[in-house]
Structures are given as structure tokens and as C-alpha cells.
Design a protein around this nucleic acid. Structure first.
Length: 239
DNA sequence: GCAAAGATTTGCT
DNA sequence: GCAAATCTTTGCC
């Protein structure tokens, strides 16, 4: 395909105009198979990608800038704390799979399953910085909100429920292999020409029910200085 | 079978 | 800063 700037639509078939774009690579499943805290850090800067619903539209791409780790049955903040249930079953399976749940009866949250089966763990994608497909993200947000979305472009994915809304993610996405380049919803590696993000670690958000030490463990990771974080980062956050 | 609570977001005071 | 919106999942009777 030799389409010029703003040029034609991609051809049908499995080749996703691979030659026209800067080389993108799938996010390696190996990075998700080991320690979940390492996996969480590795996901900062990676891309969340959703293919366009129709030819001629831009795919949605978000740079992951905020995540949280939920690790094992002993983590009282994790959905795995009550053992395997119908809802959390996928957490006990292989890494790289999507786990999506509904929270507060209205918001969906996307997790990436980590660690080898049968260890239950996952990383919650809390915020992304829009990179491409911004119009599609806003349109999806407005469908969910059933009204105008006043947020700035940089804030379209600035929270776990907002990531799901902007990317049309719901529980039907549970089980999708996010490391499969053929998946409509997937992860891609940080572009090679982008520097390593500076990462800060803080306590996780919204888990006061879990008690200590789970409330305080620094298992939330953010890309320092991103305009798309769900919340402000404490000044003394660890690296 | 029923009650309670939740890995959130938004808008109003 | 606080409360409402909204419904699934889980725990207990």
C-alpha cells in the first residue's frame, strides 16, 4: 500500500497495512508470565489498541500511563480473595487474557491477567493517554454517557471506567487474548523510538475495605507527568 | 431467596 | 467536598 498522507483505506484481509505504519510489535506474553509487579511496570508505556469498527476509520490507540497490581488470593483487595468464582475464573488462567468486570453497577474495568496458571493475579488498566483514534474514543464515551463529553482529549481515558468506555470494552471482552495480534482488542509494545517512561509507585485507589497492609502497598504505577492520570500523584511517591 | 457492598464517575453545594 | 446513580456478585439465612 502506497497511500499518501491522509490516503486510502487499508486493504481487506489480515495484513493491517503493516508496511505503511511504523513497525509495531505485539506485547510479549513473557512480560506478563512472571512477577505481577514487574508486569505492571512493563505495561506502563505499552499501547492499548482497538481496531476500527469499519474500514476507513482510525483504530484507537492509547498509551497506558496508570495501572494497579492485584496479586493472589491473600491480597484482600483482589477479586481472587474469595477463591475461584464464576466471575474471576479467568484470573486463575494463563497470562495475557482480558478480565473485565462491572463495578458499582455501571462502569467496566479492564484487567490484564498475569502469572502462570493457576496463580490468580491481574493488572488493572487505570488510565491511557490517547495516541490515535481520539474522535472514536470521544464518540464511544458519548454513547456511554448518553450526552456530550466535555473532557479534554487528554482526559478521555483518565480513569478505569473511562478507559473501558472510550474503547467500547465490556464483560464480553473477558477471555480475549490481548497478546494475539489478530485480536480486535490487544496490547502492543511501546514504540522503539520512545524512551523508557519514568515510573512512580503509590498506594492503590478505592480499596479501603481491604485493610492493611493491602491499603498501603505501593502497587499502583503511573507514568510520571502524564496529563491523563486518574488522580494526582503524592509528591513523595517512590520510584 | 435476600441483603449488602463494590478496583467509579459526575454534578451540584 | 459529598452524594447519587445502578446492578452484579457474593455471603448468609
Amino acid at each position: 500500500v502506497t497511500a499518501g498522507p491522509g490516503g486510502g483505506r487499508p486493504p481487506p484481509g489480515p495484513s493491517r497495512q503493516a508496511s505503511a505504519d511504523a513497525a509495531t510489535t505485539v506485547f510479549s506474553r513473557d512480560l506478563l508470565e512472571g512477577d505481577t509487579l514487574d508486569a505492571a511496570r512493563a505495561l506502563i508505556g505499552a499501547r492499548l489498541v482497538r481496531d476500527a469498527a469499519q474500514d476507513g476509520q482510525d483504530p484507537r490507540v492509547g498509551r497506558i500511563v496508570e495501572v494497579e497490581a492485584y496479586i493472589g488470593e491473600r491480597d484482600r483487595a483482589s477479586h481472587a480473595r474469595m477463591g475461584k468464582t464464576p466471575r474471576n475464573e479467568v484470573m486463575f488462567g494463563p497470562p495475557g487474557i482480558a478480565y473485565v468486570y462491572l463495578v458499582y453497577g455501571m462502569h467496566h474495568c479492564l484487567n490484564v491477567v498475569t502469572e502462570a496458571a493457576p496463580r490468580p493475579a491481574a493488572v488493572l488498566v487505570r488510565a491511557v493517554e490517547p495516541v490515535a483514534g481520539v474522535a472514536a474514543m470521544r464518540a464511544a464515551r458519548e454513547r456511554t454517557a448518553r450526552g456530550a463529553v466535555r473532557a479534554a482529549d487528554s482526559r478521555l481515558g483518565a480513569g478505569p471506567g473511562l478507559v473501558a468506555a472510550a474503547f467500547d470494552i465490556d464483560r464480553a471482552c473477558t477471555g480475549v487474548d490481548l497478546c494475539d495480534p489478530a485480536s480486535e482488542l490487544r496490547l502492543e509494545a511501546r514504540p522503539g523510538d520512545e524512551p523508557d517512561p519514568a515510573i512512580l509507585a503509590t498506594a492503590r485507589i478505592g480499596i479501603a475495605y481491604a485493610g492493611e497492609p493491602w491499603i498501603s502497598v505501593p502497587w499502583r504505577f503511573v507514568a510520571a507527568g502524564s496529563p491523563s492520570l486518574s488522580r494526582h500523584v503524592p509528591a513523595h511517591a517512590a520510584t
